[in-house]
Design a protein around this nucleic acid. Structure first.
Lengths: 333, 333
DNA sequence: CTGAAAGCGCTTACAG
DNA sequence: CTGAAAGCGCTTACAG
């Protein structure tokens, strides 16, 4: 562990510490030759500036903390990727942490980030206004929430997804193909405002197009309600088109239906939320309502940069969902 | 942005900066009451130690850089999760970076990490011995490679996966169920030593059990070779049991076979590498050869901790794959 | 048991 | 255009 310091560079190039600093940062007046000499020496010695020391002087670390519930969830992985990508291009280093949907871990991670004097935080929050979240606001660390919001913290801008547009397009497609009844499997809705909002949006748009009586909605919140039995029941009522609010339910249903000899896109039509890679790999390709997670991520990062670099406190934004029709939706018969 | 410093705590508690430091770090002799007073004051003021300043004195940052090719790949997401989890419990903060399978980005990220004076790095390397990788070794930053190795860097310990055990068990299962021919779809093998090793291990174990002539191997390296056509061809030769070296091919095959009305686990038996969550959701559940990514991750982290905390330079280790039989394998007929 | 002082590696006014 | 000095927030010998 032998780091080269600015002092080493100064000695070797026969200049002073301050001259080296200026040469390397293009700040202040400096002669062409000195600059060239210093740069050459720094390179030869393999000098890497110590960003901690830099940060201590400038109160800028160019480090942002990103906190997601679980990086193993493809949705959050995509989100993290998009955010990190945008921030990297803006010269920021992103430190990704995982809260495991656990408020205690979330807070531990935030305190850790705070002790590194991050320039800001992008957070998919869980639970309410916790101690660490409050600390962030108290120290007035630039902050953006993504995908979810916290009830008592209206001062923090939020970028999340608006399900209505995608659902409307999906329902319109089903209707135009002759379906007159639609089933909606809303997933484990209990603890998830996101899933709740999707169900609500489904009901609103569905009512107008199909009429209240032709909407069949069921959640899989409770362990004993299997997504398959729900589908069977609905099919008994003449439902042949389904929308899944929760993509895991869709994955489960698709293979089970195939196994039962039902052809997707012919015997049964279905659409799922979330444009997962596997949906594009399957036969037939699965129609989806995409949250455009990449847009959410880069927009969240943009909002953050607006606050940090331009001191502009942007308002919350919603990203429209988009319906992507593919082979899993056929004609009604 | 108003951070409370150690000086604030000293003033408020009527002590000195050094006393506060000692009280909070349990170092040196200190009276019970002073310690209690300082702790109380620190808490009241919401003091968060500046870890950059701490690090500058102690030459330890408790920060480790983790570099994976793409966090959106479920395998790497699992790996990152396991590593971060282990390191977190040991008191380290993990900064996850993404190289996008791009040597330039990889190097940029490493230099960035280096400038934060990380205590070490855990890396899924791509390509050969790059400049930044060399810099890490030069500064003798503790380092471990995971999942892959770099040819010219034998000094860096590697934790990766050994495909043979799992393959042997999988093949034995197929044989005991009466299958006498096996197909192996090896995936886009061209640039992947991992996939190459799997195919090689399949051939070795398969030869002993089934005989050279009953092994059918095909890669999907080239865009125009579809995994489905390969399966069709092999079935024409009387093959009804398949092993997939590359899980994406399996996902694709499973839904396509279901769509064609073939029942998995009855008409056709299959096993895939990688214990993906979706394989456990499908009907029937898909038998897999698990890399035990969680074990690889925590072992990698352990190896790293051995180096950093105990100065013990551990050797490379291989993690056995494990065969997990499930419903997608039936009896031959 | 406690405080004043030095120093980690940098940047930034301030002289010259 | 260049160098000496102060100071960012902390820890750690060193006196007392």
């Amino acid at each position: 562990m032998a780091y080269v310091t600015i002092r080493d560079v100064a000695q070797r190039s026969g200049t002073s510490v301050s001259t080296v600093s200026r040469a390397l940062n293009n700040r202040g007046r400096i002669s062409r030759e000195t600059k060239a000499l210093v740069e050459k020496t720094a390179h030869e010695l393999g000098y890497i500036p110590d960003s901690r020391a830099q940060a201590m002087r400038s109160t800028r670390t160019r480090l942002v903390g990103l906190l997601v519930p679980d990086i193993r969830n493809p949705y959050f992985a995509d989100l993290a990727y998009a955010i990190q990508d945008t921030l990297f291009d803006a010269g920021y280093c992103t430190s990704i942490g995982t809260s495991s949907e656990d408020s205690v871990k979330q807070d531990a991670y935030i305190m850790n980030m705070l002790s590194q004097h991050i320039d800001g935080a992008i957070i998919v929050p869980r639970g309410g206004k916790s101690k660490a979240l409050k600390a962030l606001v108290d120290i007035s660390v630039p902050m953006v929430f993504v995908d979810r919001h916290v009830n008592d913290m209206p001062e923090v801008p939020v970028v999340d997804s608006d399900p209505s547009e995608g659902l409307l397009k999906a329902l319109t497609d089903l209707h135009s193909r002759g379906f007159r009844k639609v089933g909606y499997i809303s997933g484990p809705i209990l603890d998830s405002p996101t899933l709740q909002e999707r169900e609500y949006a489904f009901r609103s748009a569905g009512r107008a197009l199909f009429g209240e009586d032709n909407l069949f909605v069921e959640s899989t919140s409770f362990g004993h309600v299997s997504c398959l039995s729900v589908i069977r029941k609905m099919r008994g009522s003449g439902v042949n088109a389904f929308i899944f609010g929760y993509s895991q339910d869709a994955v489960q249903a698709i293979s089970a239906l195939g196994y039962q000899g039902l052809a997707i896109g012919k015997d049964i039509s279905l659409i799922s939320f979330d444009d997962l890679e596997m949906f594009r790999l399957m036969t037939p390709n699965i129609s989806v309502i995409s949250q455009q997670v990449h847009v959410i991520g880069s927009l969240g990062a943009q909002l953050f940069l607006d606050i940090v670099e331009r001191g502009r406190k942007a308002g919350s934004q919603r990203v429209e969902t988009v319906y992507i029709p593919r082979g899993s939706v056929g004609e009604a018969r």
